[in-house]
């Protein structure tokens, strides 16, 4: 009976198109993220056949061509990836990378031919998984650096005043020649700005920012007044939580506040 089962399994495995990795930790990777059977790059004697098989990894399995919908799973989430080892994350990354290349190839060709390409959300799911892997690797990197050196090991940066005179966050980059000795770099990356034109520009720029804020404030206030005139029994505490900068005590003095109903006169 066991032998029969084994034979059944092997024939089933042979039917699957070259599924390569049955490693326990990676089987989940196939289950969740990959929407096709992985091609096994078997060492073929014929180099033509070998290369062609490997290049077909860039294409979806023929079963999924001209389909209206391709069934697939969800993306990897952070909790699942946090319990994986570094080497497992590395392997999952390359599975995802190959899947992404495949999906991009198919999407390109279907768009070029103006054909319906099934389930484009697969790309988003793969990219989401890749982003999550990067997040986990980054967390581990930060933890390692905090243990070793007391800093998080992130790329340092600071706010600088750029050539237009505006404040800007700039990431620091390593240079062979130091800043004070590199005249060429200093000329190419001027900092700060002076003069009457700059003063005028900054005055107008600040005025613009101020006006935007003022208009936003008025917009909110009028919106709240109209809400109150339409719905007089509205819960004020909710509104106060949503618009903390509005003074609700003075609102009822506005003309807009009166709704289209007869007020209660005592």
């Amino acid at each position: 009976m066991i032998i029969l089962n084994l034979i059944k399994r092997t024939t089933f495995a042979a039917q699957l198109l070259n599924r390569s990795i049955f490693n326990n930790s990676l089987y989940n990777g196939i289950k969740y993220c990959v929407t096709r059977n992985i091609h096994l790059s078997q060492p073929a004697h014929d180099i033509n056949e070998d290369v062609n098989n490997k290049l077909m990894e860039f294409f979806d399995v023929p079963k999924n061509w001209n389909e209206n919908e391709v069934k697939h799973g969800r993306s990897w989430n952070l909790a699942e990836l946090r319990i994986k080892s570094n080497s497992d994350l590395h392997k999952i990354w390359f599975i995802l990378l190959k899947e992404l290349n495949m999906l991009k190839t198919m999407e390109h060709e279907y768009k070029r031919e103006w054909k319906w390409w099934a389930s484009p959300e697969r790309i988003d799911k793969v990219q989401d998984s890749m982003k999550n892997i990067e997040t986990v690797v980054r967390e581990r990197n930060q933890a390692y650096h905090m243990l070793e050196s007391g800093t998080d090991g992130e790329q340092p940066g600071q706010y600088i005043t750029n050539a237009l005179g505006l404040r800007e966050y700039k990431k620091s980059v390593e240079h062979i020649v130091p800043y004070w000795a590199n005249k060429k770099w200093r000329e190419a990356n001027p900092r700060g700005c002076h003069g009457p034109d700059y003063q005028k520009f900054m005055r107008l720029y600040r005025e613009k920012i101020y006006n935007d804020k003022r208009k936003g404030r008025n917009r909110d206030k009028n919106h709240v007044i109209r809400l109150l005139s339409r719905f007089p029994n509205l819960d004020r505490n909710v509104l106060k939580g949503k618009y903390p900068q509005i003074n609700f005590d003075t609102l009822n003095k506005k003309d807009l506040y009166r709704g289209h109903y007869v007020p209660d006169v005592e």
Binding site: F58, F59, K104, M130, V137, R138, Q155
Partner: peptide, 26 residues
Amino acid sequence: SSRWYPLYQRGNPQLRVFLPNFWMKI
């Protein structure tokens, strides 16, 4: 941090990309 590589100086070990984010399509 995994995309921030140190400046290469002669004699240093070769820079290696562990999680390449390049894509290719045929």
